[in-house]
Amino acid sequence: MTDKEKIISEKQLRKKTIISFSVFIVMIAFAIFGWKWLHKQPQENEAPRPLRKALNYNEGLFGKFFSNNHLAKTFPLSAAVKHVRVNGDEGMSADFDASTWKLKVAKTPGDTLFVTLDEIKALPKTEIVFDFKCIEGWSQVTHWGGVKFSDFAQKYGLNEQTKMNYVGLITPDKGYYVGIDMPAIMHPQTLLCYEMNGKPLPMNQGYPLRLIIPVKYGIKHLKRIGSIFFSNERPPDYWYERGYDYYAGL
């Protein structure tokens, strides 16, 4: 008989079994109770508060891995698709008047900048072909052109503003809005984009100007930018309010 073996009475066997199974059943009860408890917690932006807290924790942790040297993979021009998927029209009201459009940049309260499309086009142009990733799980290699947000910020003297924590972007009809952390908007691949496949943006892709931000899911690539503002608090975010992660970083 090895030290792993033991002779015990029937009664001892029954007792040992009952004790172990009691603990086992209590743990199952805890698991079920915990699952129910989780779903009864107050919602914070459409997610149970404990999950929301954990997502915010993930943002802090994975934000530490973020670097301007980590670039989204780029592709040759030939890899870009001709038919770019259109996946939503929130904030794209039909009554939009392109002829009067100007980009509104709120520098400080009372100091607002208005920039025309031609002024934006006059800035150094950057093109990118990358794998656009939707939060739904599909992705598509697409070709975009515009000005780096960081170049734009430098040109228009937004140094003080870009020291803040977040940028908010809103469509002209205020129907869609996103909040983006400053490191992501200042990433070298983030564009204020006015071209797709070498041509002006189509209406349904956000003409005249949209955001292309390869370090985020598609939900953050706001189409048809109306205004931009800066904040140390999280700006409102359309999909965040509907239960998604605020960060949505890749």
Partner: peptide, 21 residues
């Protein structure tokens, strides 16, 4: 799949974003 840009080397080693999924 979660962080394909920050862990791009891992993603490339596993065959790219779509393969990884």
């Amino acid at each position: 799949i979660y962080k394909p840009v920050q862990f791009h080397t891992l993603c490339a080693m596993l065959g790219g974003y779509e393969w990884t999924r």
